[in-house]
Design a protein around this nucleic acid. Structure first.
Lengths: 248, 248
DNA sequence: GGGTGTGAAGCTATTCACAGCC
DNA sequence: GGCTGTGAATAGCTTCACACCC
């Protein structure tokens, strides 16, 4: 049964989120809100107080029509003929995303990547706070990393309860990821960010998003292959035939 | 003009790739091929030689209909009533993605994250090879990291030419990213993987994909906020009104 | 019987284009 | 005149369901 749930839940790109019930914001829009927020923050720091959809879209790397459509799902926050108030819009988006509260995060796996994540400043800057560092490696346990002590894995449950952690970040090797995931879920975590190169099976109601450099590189390679090459004009079949002919 | 190109090019999710011309594989499918490849590799290691779409879909975390549709864009590589040959399919997908050749990659920015990336094994395992490490910080230059010497930024152009680098990975702070990107592009790099939390402007023909932990966390927070809370049944407007009432 | 390959249907997302308001 | 907000049109993606083949 567990399998079926997980499969069904992961119907969407990489999160198992419903694509919005009644009055819901489309998933594609949700994924862009953080982009708008970042662009607005940059503008605010530059002292800009009002921005048009063209300007903001440019800064966020989207089209203005898309931006306006996205914002229209949140409400009518602009002024016709003028644009959007930078601070006002920033606040509205923050609230929509849920960044007005702060989120305690558990980071599991303190290897090279875990270290980098623990020290990543942009983490804390927006409402996220690493509340626990966990590893299974005895050599790591007890160490100070980014101002926190690395805890053994068997403390995971109590740390999650104590700090009211709702989001878990997995930065372990692939083989350990599912086990860590199961423990996080059992302890009540319902949102997981997975850096391990593996597919996680989770029960319904748990959101998983993945960050996978290897996949991104492969997607780039796919397109790169088709840019400057003789392969460009050939179908896969033709290319295969040609390749074989050349080889043997 | 540069702006317009960049904006138009970034119409797709995060890559500036066309969604496939004649006989093209849909972008959504391309993004899943690496997932199938990984699942097939795991199966092959376990000694499995044949797999059905149900089993493979389960392993890759997608539905079987989606998997079959995706594979159908590549060709008819299965056998009705039987399934897919693991090794055969693996080879076909590898070729489609372009992993039969190997790709030289330049990694720019050797901070915490850069170190983690340089040491990431999964990098080399599939046709990607880090051919150059580059940083601007004099303290880093000359250091040995993962078997390579960190080079100064002004060698970037010659390194790219010498090693025929087509893919650049940016792991610098946000403020340095656009400059690095411009230099990479000027030196002939047409695919960029960006870890810096900023939107890159690139000319048409250059693919950019981004990996952004902060955005992923925010998307999780959005959904988390709507799971267990009184907010669940309220519209944003109602929630705002309520929040203000409580506060003041 | 079992499982792929694929048109057709349904759904989601993007783009267009313009009414409406400042 | 300028710019937002949004229905309508279009494009793209996913799911269905079954013909077809082993």
């Amino acid at each position: 049964m567990r399998r079926t749930q997980a499969a069904a839940a992961r119907a969407g790109e990489s999160s198992s989120a419903p694509s919005g019930g009644a009055r819901g914001v489309p998933e594609a829009t949700v994924a862009r809100l953080p982009l708008y927020l970042r662009a607005l923050t940059t503008l605010a720091e530059r002292g800009v107080s009002t921005v048009s959809s063209d300007q903001l879209a440019e800064a966020a790397g989207v089209t203005s029509a898309k931006l306006r459509k996205d914002l229209s799902y949140l409400g009518s926050y602009g002024t016709r003929g003028v644009g959007y108030g930078v601070d006002f819009l920033r606040h509205q988006i923050s609230r929509e995303i849920g960044l007005t509260q702060d989120w305690a995060v558990a980071l599991v796996g303190i290897g090279h990547l875990g270290h980098a994540l623990a020290n990543y400043a942009g983490f804390a800057s927006r409402g996220f706070r690493i509340a626990a560092l966990v590893d299974t490696d005895p050599a790591q346990i007890g160490k100070e990393v980014a101002g926190l002590t690395v805890e053994p894995a068997d403390r995971l449950e109590s740390l999650i309860k104590r700090h009211r952690i709702a989001i878990g970040v997995i930065a372990t090797p692939a083989r350990a990821a599912q086990g860590v995931c199961d423990r996080l879920v059992a302890a009540g975590v319902t949102s997981i960010l997975n850096f391990a190169p593996t597919v996680l099976q989770v029960p319904e109601g748990v959101d998983v998003r993945k960050v996978d450099m290897s996949i991104e590189l492969q997607i780039l390679a796919y397109h790169e292959q088709r840019k400057n090459g003789a392969t460009l004009a050939l179908t896969p079949e033709q290319a295969a035939t040609l390749a074989e002919a050349v080889r043997g």
